[in-house]
Design a protein around this nucleic acid. Structure first.
Lengths: 340, 340
DNA sequence: CCAAAATTCCAAAGCGCTTTGACAACAGAC
DNA sequence: GTCTGTTGTCAAAGCGCTTTGGAATTTTGG
């Protein structure tokens, strides 16, 4: 069933039917009713490809998903996508996901953009000096960045959380509890959020004249296995840290395993604060020792990003170009006074 | 840059350029070279919407993603998608993801199908008597089902794992270890895999004249929180089970927490076997007591499904219509002889 | 009652691509 | 020198939709 058939069926021209469907005013209400009725009955749906060709728009936002045989999927990706979707479904938008080798993301992004398949682009997992940014800026297509890119002038639309502030505050809390030896279990070194979180820690320590030794920093992709491994290394240090900052609850899962297996008690021998993206399957309050966290919902960020992106495409704006969300510091049982 | 401009630039007709690009034989090799050269230089990419309109194909597979404010994202979804993507990227295919309210999935699937945006469809999270199946069959568009639908004649293309066999074997192992009181931590009751796994357990128990009491079965969405909660209930039973079958390592995470908090030892007081989808961030060998599991890689299933789907669209087939993968039973430390 | 304005509808062009059918140009066969 | 067969190219139609400019019809105002 296409427009032509539908209009013939109704004895109207394609123009009129199209207008009736798209809410143009110059069509009789009675006629519009009749058209809508027929659409109901026949189940007619306009062909999106044709619509896109004609209008240049088709209600889709594009993103590239890194994937390769050795490449780990990321729990956070799914959670974020769910947030995007939650908003998209309200506007009848869909996603076009272009899978890409992680080494080829820039090219994949360009292909996606000029494929004419999407109205707007979304990127995340920003790095310092991110090479996708110049591309995006040159593209004359709406885009939105989740996170920021260190060492790049922030003249692009983004939504980010205050990573530096979060880890600064967390470190301060631990300092107040008397801790002096710190360890940082962080995400991959090149990622922007990891850089900023590290800066937050270093800066809070600096105010007290403390430093974060190189061997007390661990950068890794965020799986529980890596968390455990890195924590084991920390624990074997001659002057082992008593306070741990941790970039994800997934990492914390492994780290705590290492603590427990070493016969140490969380919240007493070792204090730990993790960043909580509010993953539904891994709640900090459910850990055997409930976790003190810096919290910011990844999913909520997804919803907001979809809102802004879709709003821009539909020209519902204006939206603020840049948003920086504060995180909440939630104290639970995994933090305690420094052991003496 | 579009075809017309490119062809004018080259002094050729659109036809010739198009043919050169799409590998048709009736074009001079020298001309083809010249065209390819120009494409390199200009970065020309055909407009996918136009291509789709003209050919009816555009290299995309469609899927619907359930999402709603209260709806949990599922870790398994991301992992599976990564597998799909791993194969798709090799064929320059992309995904069109239609977010949908979970109550509206059938309609969303129909919209996606007749939107003319996709070449093939994929569905998962099958239920008994799944209402999407009749729709898919009526659609005359290639599709593939991950899982099966209980109570529906299996006359549709699917890829599934042998859930019943997996849990049958796991139960047998526990029986051999002398266990007689069983508990089942299962996925949502209406889902096909949950039904089959339950059947596997019941059938193995039945052979020994044993039953699975209603209060030793728990159906829930698979988060660690639910796992913990359900396990706590099991442990309070007057005749508490000593052997636990568990539909996911995520559930197991919570269940084990309950076991530990009750002061019981996994592998001694309580034996547990979980199904392992090979999630990279949650490895059974890393649990404080390594987990005995039935294993089948979700990601590998994704790769295979993409292979079949893309192959069908490209007419590379034929592929077997139905595949049933065996799972591996891997014995680790969480299973031991029944306590006396 | 008639001209002007408003309303309702339509024919046709165009979006960027693929594909059909045809046409030159050139070779070799008789 | 004509006839057939290749080879390389092109013009034009068509995919299903939106949108422009204009035509037909109805309503309004003097």
């Amino acid at each position: 069933m296409n427009l032509k058939q539908l209009s013939e069926m109704l004895g109207l021209s394609q123009t009129t039917v199209s207008r009736a469907l798209n809410g143009y005013p110059e069509v009789n209400e009675a006629t519009r009713e009749r058209v809508l009725q027929a659409v109901q009955e026949t189940g007619y749906r306009p062909n999106k490809a044709a619509q896109r060709l004609a209008t240049g728009k088709a209600g889709s936002i594009g993103l590239v998903m890194p994937t390769a045989p050795g490449h780990y999927s990321d729990v956070h990706f799914g959670e974020f996508l769910t947030g995007l979707g939650e908003e998209a479904v309200r506007h009848d938008f869909h996603f076009v996901i272009m899978p890409s080798d992680p080494d080829d993301e820039v090219a994949a992004l360009r292909r996606l953009a000029i494929s004419g398949n999407v109205d707007a682009l979304f990127v995340a997992y920003m790095r310092g000096h991110d090479p996708r940014l110049p591309l995006l800026k040159s593209l004359s297509m709406p885009f939105l960045v989740h996170g920021r890119s260190f060492c790049t002038e922030p003249d692009y639309p983004y939504l980010d959380i205050d990573n530096e502030g979060a880890f600064y505050d967390a470190t301060r809390l631990l300092l107040q509890l008397g801790h002096t030896r710190f360890g940082l279990l962080n995400g991959p070194e090149h990622l922007d959020f990891a850089i900023r979180r590290r800066n937050g820690v270093v800066s809070a320590l600096g105010e007290r004249g403390l430093t974060l030794p190189e061997d007390c920093i661990s950068h890794m992709s965020m799986t529980d296995e890596h968390g455990q491994f890195a924590m084991e290394r920390f624990l074997q240090l001659p002057e082992r840290p008593t306070a741990i900052l941790c970039s994800s609850t997934v990492l914390a899962l492994g780290a705590i395993r290492a603590v427990t297996q070493a016969g140490l008690k969380l919240g007493e021998d070792i204090s730990l604060i993790a960043h909580d993206d509010v993953l539904p399957h891994l709640k900090p309050e459910n850990f055997s020792v409930p976790l003190t966290t810096t919290r910011s919902s990844l999913r909520a960020a997804g919803v907001r990003i979809a809102q802004r992106l879709i709003g821009t495409v539909k020209r519902d704006g204006p939206f603020p170009e840049q948003e920086l969300w504060k995180t909440e510091l939630i104290v639970r049982a995994s933090t305690g006074a420094a052991p003496r």
